[in-house]
Structure formats: C-alpha cells, structure tokens
C-alpha cells in the first residue's frame, strides 16, 4: 500500500509528465495527444513504483519488461523513460525528427529502455508472451507488462495471443487495457463493439481486475494482486479518459492523432498550473 506522501509524489509527477507530453507533441507538430494523456498514471505506476528496472543498465536480464502495444502512446512512455533517467530530457525535443532516438512509435533499436518495438497494433501481447516464455525457461522472476488500447482489442492477433497466454499459464504476464472508449473514427463501441471486454478476457482464461486508470491507489493495488495470481495471466481493465488532464481535450475523439497548437498548449499549461 502507498502512503499519502507517495501518492502526492506520483500525482505531482503525473502533472509534470503531462506538461512534458504536451510540449513535446507541440514541438513535434504531430503525434497522438489523447491516447498519451490517458496512459500517464498507468505507465508511471509501473516505472516509478511497480517494475524492477535499472535505467543505468537498460538490458539488465532480471528487469521486468514493458511492452507498449498501443505504440502510439509513445510520448507518455518516452517522457517517463526520460524522467527515470534512461536518456536526457532534452531528447524529448527531437520526437519524430529525422535522426532522433525517439521515433514516432517505440523502437528498440534506437531508444534506451524500449524492450521491443511496437506501433503496428495487435502485435504487442504476442511479443510479451514470447518474453514471458523465455523468462520462465530461464527461471527468471521477472514479469512482463503489456499496455493495450481498447480499440486495439479489435485486432484478431490479440485474441490468438490471449488464448496462448492462458494455455501456457503465463502468470508472469500482466496485460493492461487503456479503456478510454474512443478510437480514431469515433467511440469504440460505435466503430466495432468490444464489450463486454472484461468478460471476454475472463472467458479466455485470464484473471481480470477493473480499476479507475487515473487512480494510483487502485492501479497499484491491482498490479500487486496480479502478482499473486498463479497459473494464469492477469488483465487490468483501466477505465480512463482520453486527453485526461486538459479539459478541452478530455473525451474528444478529434484529439486522437493531432498535437496541441501553440494556443492550446498555452491554455493547457495554465490548467496544469504552469504559468
């Protein structure tokens, strides 16, 4: 359990991360605003609390792994990696620029701390399963966390992988769905209904938890519980708000794939308490 001081620290960090994300997206003039902001508390909970990792030794064999299957949320991950110390914060200014270590979607070849490249939706859970199988073969205690989008659950490969993780009893896999309810063309359940999503995963043999994806206490409690589940993988359905933290981005489908303008950035920073 976390005490109030720890929670306050994480909450303050979340605000910093949101500011970083908005600035880097504005600077890059492209990228995914809504789906980056919705993941902040989840990714922070992992890197600043739950996961065993070492920014000084990104390839440490006993580290926990993280797969951002919804690779378009890269700005949130990059910011958290930079704030963890994997690379200098100044790199954030180079997002999506030619020659940058920060590609539009996570790239293990160029970015310290990225365990595997993602961005083509639906592929992350399979790769996470592969890592988990290897860790079990090598008798390593590490866990593999994989963050998926809710729209991403429309990909068939996700369900192939969901079946396989349960079949091979991969209790070192913990999936998390950033369930913000929106995808590029509109509300997820209008484009292609995924509900009842928790029941589906449960039917596939996963232990399912539901949390408020912006509440550190709930996220971390679920991550702790998932760690105690044996012989089956765990899934956390994290209810989130797309664009979370900036009132005029929240719940707005049109901010899926566009960055904030200079004016929007200025207004957003005021909302986040930066003047």
């Amino acid at each position: 359990m976390l005490d109030t001081v720890q929670i306050e620290k994480l909450e303050s960090l979340a605000k910093t991360i949101r500011v970083d994300i908005l600035k880097m997206l504005n600077n890059a003039s492209s990228g995914h605003t809504g789906g980056s902001l919705s993941t902040v508390e989840i990714i922070l909970s992992l890197y600043f609390h739950k996961m065993r990792h070492n920014p000084k030794d990104p390839k440490w064999l006993d580290r926990d792994r993280f797969v951002l299957s919804k690779g378009h949320g890269a700005p949130a991950l990059y910011t958290v990696l930079a704030r963890s110390g994997y690379f200098d914060l100044s790199e954030l200014r180079n997002l999506r620029k030619l020659g940058s270590i920060l590609q539009g979607h996570p790239d293990m070849k160029v970015t310290p701390g990225i365990d595997i490249s993602t961005g083509s939706l639906g592929q992350g859970l399979s790769m996470a399963n592969g890592m988990a199988l290897a860790l079990k073969l090598d008798k390593r205690p590490s866990r593999v966390y994989v963050l998926m989008g809710d729209g991403e659950n429309q990909e068939g490969q996700i369900w192939e992988a969901a079946m396989a993780a349960a079949h091979y009893k991969l209790d070192n896999v913990c999936g998390i769905i950033d369930h913000n309810g929106l995808q590029i063309d509109g509300p997820v359940n209008e484009i292609m209904k995924i509900e009842p999503i928790a029941d589906k995963w449960s039917c596939f043999g996963w232990e399912v938890f539901r949390v408020n994806g912006h509440d550190f206490r709930e996220i971390i409690a679920a991550l702790d519980k998932a760690e105690t589940v044996k012989n089956k993988p765990s899934l956390i359905v994290a209810r989130t708000i797309k664009g979370k933290g900036v009132s005029f981005f929240e719940g707005k489908v049109e901010y899926h794939g566009i960055p904030p303008t200079d004016e929007e950035l200025a207004k957003a920073l005021v909302e986040l308490g930066i003047t």
Binding site: I116, S126, N129, G130, M131, A134
Partner: peptide, 18 residues
Amino acid sequence: GVAEQNLMGTAAGLAASG
C-alpha cells in the same frame, strides 16, 4: 495452434529475450 500471426509475434518476444 493454428495462429500464425501469434506464432511470429511470440517468436519475436522469445528472440528479444536471448
């Protein structure tokens, strides 16, 4: 099983772990 996409993805994850 009969799931080639997952086959290739899982192969990638195993390879990424040595």
